[in-house]
Amino acid sequence: MALVKDVARAAAQRALDDYWDGTIPVNPARIAMDLGMNVYRAYLAEDQSGMIRKLENEPAEIFLNANEPPLRQNFTCAHELGHWFERRSQSDEEYSFVDHRNATPNDAHEWFAEHFAANLLMPTREFITAADRGLSVAELSDYFVVSQPAIRNRLRALNMPYGGR
């Protein structure tokens, strides 16, 4: 049986292969819209980063907290897109996920979405190439439009040293 992180990585790679235009930073909102989803910036509850809602016979809707910085909105959008890819693989026609700020993934759905988002926003080949150029964590963060903790997590996931840069 495959690990959730491996299934999420494969799903993110399929999304990149099928919907990504090859430019960095990856634009998850553009991918979502190309897939027929609606993406909104909305004023959500203070502890909510975003949500996805899919009703039967309706396009999925992704809501991003307009009060959060663009880096967070970008990752949240990719995370919600991960939920969509996972539920689509299960042929689910109706579902909803709300993602809370600073929440630790506590089930397989959240683990999938987190790993999917990291792999989507920081494609492996491009990430390794950028890191091998000697870019600092801050420079990688700016380049991929993700937070510095996301960069550090990606470096660890790829078993790449970062020396606390």
Rank of each mutant, 00 (worst) to 15 (best):
L3D: 11
M33R: 15
S91A: 14
G163M: 10
Y40N: 13
Q148V: 02
S147V: 02
V137W: 00
M33C: 12
G163Y: 15
A138C: 08
D142V: 00
H109R: 09
H79S: 05
A32C: 06
K5H: 08
A2P: 06
P70E: 11
R88C: 03
N102R: 14
R165T: 13
L120Y: 05
A8Y: 06
N119V: 05
A10E: 14
Q148P: 00
A130H: 08
N27C: 10
Y95P: 07
N159T: 15
A11S: 12
S89R: 08
E139G: 12
A118F: 02
A157L: 10
D92T: 04
A130S: 15
D21C: 05
A29F: 06
H79F: 06
L71N: 09
Q90Y: 05
Q73M: 11
L135W: 04
E86A: 05
M122R: 00
A10H: 14
P105I: 03
Y19G: 03
T104G: 08
H83R: 06
Q148E: 15
A78L: 02
N74F: 03
R87K: 15
G164Q: 11
S49G: 14
R125N: 15
E94F: 04
K54R: 15
A60L: 07
F112P: 01
D142M: 07
A138E: 15
L140G: 00
F116N: 00
N74R: 09
A118T: 02
R165L: 12
H83W: 09
A66V: 13
W84Q: 07
N38L: 15
A42C: 11
R41Q: 10
L64D: 05
I62G: 01
R9N: 10
G50K: 01
R154N: 03
N38A: 14
E58H: 13
S96L: 12
A138P: 03
S89D: 10
E139Q: 14
